[in-house]
Design a protein around this nucleic acid. Structure first.
Length: 144
DNA sequence: GCCAACGTTGGC
DNA sequence: GCCAACGTTGGC
């Protein structure tokens, strides 16, 4: 199982909306690197849900429930999406500033490439952030 | 194939 | 609102 981080502007698609929807298509990704990350996702993988621009914090944990499949509306055949569902909100949102302050997280793709909207997260990074968020990593893993 | 101009993302 | 850090486009 792999770990990821999904960015979304709350004004465009918020965590609350994902919770209300119960499941959604994670589409609209155009950046080649972000698309590569999407393609690597497998059902059961976990992802932090990060609010960009407004908030700038991790507010929830989501699960990949369907691997990459092509976007039927894309003629180029390159674009695609995965399906995700909410697992749980985090008791303590973790801000970008808090993550920047942790040496263990200095290598994070999120911090190194601010424009990357779909980022990989290492197991170590996942554990550190879960701790900061007030959730046990095993809780985030088993879900529900 | 280079590179200037332009567009976009997202932190500040 | 500004701007840095990209990515993309198109003329040459």
């Amino acid at each position: 199982m792999a770990y990821w981080l999904l960015k979304s502007e709350p004004s465009v698609y918020s965590w609350d909306r994902l919770v209300a929807d119960g499941r959604t298509h994670w589409d609209g990704v155009r950046n080649a690197q972000a698309l590569n990350n999407l393609r690597a996702m497998q059902p059961g993988d976990r992802a932090f849900f990060y609010h960009s621009n407004a908030g700038k914090d991790i507010v929830g944990v989501a699960e990949i429930v369907r691997a990459f499949y092509p976007d039927p509306n894309d003629r180029s055949g390159k674009l695609g999406m995965v399906d995700v569902r909410p697992v749980m909100p985090v008791p303590q949102p973790v801000t970008l500033a808090q993550m920047k302050a942790r040496p263990e997280l200095a290598g994070m793709a999120l911090l190194r490439q601010s424009r990357l909207s779909v980022c990989p997260v290492s197991e170590r990074e996942w554990q550190v952030i879960c701790e900061m968020a007030g959730i046990g990593p095993e809780t985030a893993r088993s879900g529900d």
